[in-house]
């Protein structure tokens, strides 16, 4: 059984159909990349999987470990192990990164029937994880994402991913707005999380990110459908030739 299974998924926003039948299966341990031009539904796909309001699923199914995801509320999906690394992480004034992480971690632990994490253990854990990611520990004392640079925001996303240890991580244009150094740091963080139990869905516009996070499968999303699938060489081909031919055939 696939870890994340998407079957003939149709979804619309404000009455307009954006996803027109997506079928995908992520096996444990796999990294899938979704590439495509702007406005073809890449972000819609990630939002629909994560359960954001305002997206209407008109047809199709999504399963995590065989459980129907579409039946769950956004927070239940998150506790079940779906993690979305946001393209634009929001600022939450007054809430320190540390308080936020702790609340999220405890929500997950509670759902799993575990006791809340001890304050000291929590700090130790954060310290260890920030060190691995090469992040300054002080960052967790700052209000979440407030005044963070683009690179800091993405690193904070990876830190959260590291702490929450999801089953499936969706990276929504994680490379946008990053310079090459930040891109390396973020990619290393993601790579360190790759494991046989976990799957990744990496959404990106550019091939560049895939030099660092090497995918097992690459899919081209065009006009709300998967227009082509292949191995990592497909990404290089797209880089060289562009998306034009998929747009034409799909139209």
């Amino acid at each position: 059984m696939a870890l994340l299974e998407i079957k003939n998924l149709h979804a619309s926003v404000a009455g307009k159909e954006i996803l027109k039948g997506i079928t995908l299966a992520l096996e444990p341990g796999e990294v899938h990349a979704i590439m495509g031009p702007n406005g073809t539904g890449k972000s819609t796909l990630s939002n629909v999987i994560a359960g954001r309001e305002g997206y209407e699923v008109t047809k199709g199914e999504v399963y995590l470990d065989g459980k129907d995801v579409l039946d769950m509320a956004a927070d239940e999906r998150a506790r079940a192990g779906i993690f979305l690394a946001f393209q634009y992480p929001v600022e939450i004034p007054g809430v320190t990164t540390s308080a936020f992480l702790k609340t999220a971690l405890n929500a997950k632990r509670r759902a799993a029937g575990q006791p809340e994490i001890d304050a000291m253990d929590f700090l130790k854990l954060v310290k260890a994880k920030t060190a691995v990611l090469g992040m300054p520990y002080d960052m967790i004392k700052r209000p979440l994402n407030v005044g963070f640079s683009g690179g800091e925001k993405k690193r904070a996303e990876v830190l959260q991913m590291t702490m929450l240890e999801p089953r499936v991580a969706i990276l929504d244009e994680t490379d946008s707005g990053l310079d090459i150094d930040a891109l390396k740091v973020v990619s290393e963080g993601v790579n360190s999380l790759r494991s046989p139990e976990r799957a990744f869905l990496v959404i990106t516009h550019y091939q560049r990110l895939l030099d660092y996070i090497v995918p097992d499968h690459v899919h081209v999303l065009a006009n709300g459908r998967i227009a082509a699938s292949g191995g990592k060489e497909l990404a290089l081909e797209l880089e060289a030739e562009g998306y034009a031919k998929y747009l034409n055939t799909a139209a």
């Binding site: 309001e53 956004a74 998150a78 979305l84 946001f86 929001v90 939450i92 936020f100 999220a104 929450l164």
Partner: peptide, 14 residues
Amino acid sequence: SDDQLFYCLQRGMT
């Protein structure tokens, strides 16, 4: 904001 709320929900909070 809806964005703030969704962000928190996506991290598993009720």
